[in-house]
């Protein structure tokens, strides 16, 4: 790890200022992603702005729903009574990620900003447009078993690794950020971006902006939810495919409302709008679920080693829908 200047600003204003003054300056939250990348030389900060003392750790009910402070840990969110009661999908998704120790360290803001686990991104000796723009994409013709099916470009086929974000996408969360120019809100679906020609940019955060909180709007999805994560071992592994499902069923088992999002398939959490539209108003039958799963796959494109995802993804959607609706 290279030497760096370490600062611990007292308030958000100072933090934002401190960050904007450094060229290679980074906020440090739980450190579970940043410190790892520093060890691997993937990022080489000149300055570390430790934001852990900023008062952004609260989880509180606000008018627009539930506000998760950017520094609330993943465990605190997953175990929070309001989350368990009103947003159980979020709790399931968080607990499907990483390990208990990591979730005790990882924060809401850091989780949103964690970078891809693509092996070419982490290995300085191999090409990666995300790490070193213009160097090429090693995964494109390389080992791309974990890689994207949707929305990729010929510059980058990496996927976003966050489980929490898949649930947040499904729940229509809103990200509150603060920068030198003031505060703004970003709809969750607009927060992460597709790689396009600039895969080095994971999201739409402007340089120097600090995530303050993530808001969850009121939700009716308190009962029929499921987060299904298929991976290469039973726990402590990133997703091959993950699916977040939230259903609002009436007493006749008709789908009043539904949210579907998939992880492990794109550069951002992949909301399945077309499948949702199909399911809305229909009954919660295996047949409809199957069709919804097929609809979700429109436009999917696989590479040499992730062909299996073309089948695993709809299977996982189907299984998640069945589980959420109580059919298994």
């Amino acid at each position: 790890m290279n030497p760096f200047i370490y600062t611990r600003p007292a308030d958000t204003g100072a933090a934002i200022k401190s960050l904007s003054r450094g060229n290679q300056a980074f906020f440090l939250a739980g450190g579970t992603n940043l410190v790892d990348m520093m060890k691997m030389g993937v990022v080489v900060p000149e300055k570390i702005v430790d934001i852990n003392r900023l008062p952004l750790r609260n989880i509180e009910a606000v008018q627009s729903g539930l506000r998760l402070g950017a520094l609330a840990t993943n465990s605190e969110v997953a175990d929070h009574p309001d989350v368990l009661k009103n947003y159980p999908l979020l709790s399931l998704a968080i607990n499907a990620g990483a390990s208990p120790q990591l979730r005790n360290m990882a924060t809401v803001g850091g989780n949103l900003l964690q970078r891809t686990r693509c092996p070419y991104f982490f290995d300085l000796t191999m090409p990666c447009n995300k790490r070193a723009p213009g160097s090429g994409c090693g995964a494109l013709a390389g080992f791309n078993r974990m890689h994207a099916l949707f929305g990729a470009s010929d510059k980058c086929i990496a996927v976003n690794p966050s489980d929490m974000s898949v649930a947040l996408a499904a729940l229509d969360a809103v990200v509150h950020v603060r920068g030198a120019g003031g505060d703004r809100e970003i709809k969750f679906e607009d927060f992460h971006r597709l790689p396009g020609d600039e895969p080095q940019l994971d999201n739409t955060l402007a340089k120097g902006e600090l995530i303050m909180a993530v808001d969850l709007p009121p939700s009716a999805f308190t009962k029929h939810v499921h987060y299904l994560k298929v991976r290469d071992r039973s726990s402590y592994a990133f997703a091959l495919i993950s699916v977040a499902v939230a259903l609002d069923l009436d007493k006749d088992n008709n789908i009043k409302d539904v949210r579907l999002a998939m992880g492990g398939v794109a550069h951002k959490p992949w909301r399945l709008r077309a499948s949702e539209d199909f399911l809305k108003g229909r009954s919660a039958t295996e047949d409809n679920f199957k069709q919804a799963a097929q609809i979700a796959m429109q436009g999917a494109k696989a590479y040499q080693y992730n062909q299996f995802k073309l089948k695993l993804a709809p299977n996982t959607i189907l299984q998640a829908l069945k589980t959420a609706s109580g059919q298994v």
Partner: peptide, 18 residues
């Protein structure tokens, strides 16, 4: 794994100064 203020964490990813 150690406990920091009672919570289990991976001490290898925690800069000591934090």
């Amino acid at each position: 794994t150690v406990h920091a203020d009672g919570a289990r964490i991976n001490s290898c990813l925690s800069l000591a100064v934090t």
